[in-house]
Amino acid sequence: MALTREEREQFLAEPHTGALAVDAGAGRAPLTVPIWYQYEPGGDLWVMTGRSSRKNELIRAAGRFSLMVDRVEPTVRYVSVEGPVVDTVPVTVEHLREMSARYLPAEKVDAFVDASWKNHGDQVVVRMRPEHWVSSDLGSLSDL
């Protein structure tokens, strides 16, 4: 059963690992990679990636990407969004802290931010405006 707008936005706002997909060009399947993301209901979704990464180059060329998140408990549920890139800006320490705090225990955030800032090179935040949504809750696996 499809999710309501509120259900799908709330689900996307939870800290799942996403599967980002972007057109990889003629004769290639889409590039699909796991990624952390940030989203607040009603807003734009954003991801971080290396400025010179293949992922960023493909996103820049396509001008849009898709992100799918799912879970299998307590029910099988997924949300997929696709939309245009609306902004790309350099990553700040504040971006790293916000994203890290979303996924890591509080006591791990500072060390992760410090290591990322020092070791991950030049990164960017890519913002996408969700335009097309596909979602479903397939029920509990115990109901099968």
Rank of each mutant, 00 (worst) to 15 (best):
V109M: 11
T88F: 05
V93A: 13
D114T: 14
E98I: 02
S52I: 04
A29Y: 14
D44S: 06
E94M: 04
R71E: 15
R60L: 10
L67I: 15
M99K: 07
D44C: 05
M48A: 07
A101R: 14
E98K: 14
P41T: 08
T75A: 07
R97G: 08
G50V: 00
T88G: 00
G50W: 01
L104Y: 01
S116G: 12
P90Q: 00
V113W: 02
M99P: 00
P84E: 13
Y78T: 09
V109L: 11
S52Q: 12
S52C: 00
A111M: 04
S80D: 01
Y39K: 06
A106K: 11
A106Y: 00
V33P: 08
Y103P: 02
R28G: 03
W36D: 06
R64H: 14
W46R: 09
S116F: 07
S52G: 01
R102Y: 03
A106G: 04
N56I: 03
R102P: 06
G63C: 13
T49K: 05
I35L: 15
F65D: 01
R77M: 12
A101C: 12
G25Q: 04
V91Y: 13
A101K: 09
L96N: 07
M99H: 02
D110V: 07
W46Q: 11
P41K: 09
D70W: 10
R54K: 12
Y37F: 14
V85S: 12
L58C: 04
V79W: 01
V85F: 00
Y37W: 05
P34C: 05
G25K: 09
E98T: 14
V109C: 12
D87G: 13
Y78R: 08
W36Y: 11
V69S: 08
M68E: 14
V76Y: 11
Y103M: 08
V89K: 15
Q38T: 10
T49H: 01
V89L: 10
R64Q: 14
I35P: 05
F112M: 03
S66K: 01
V81M: 05
R28I: 03
R60I: 00
R51G: 03
R97L: 06
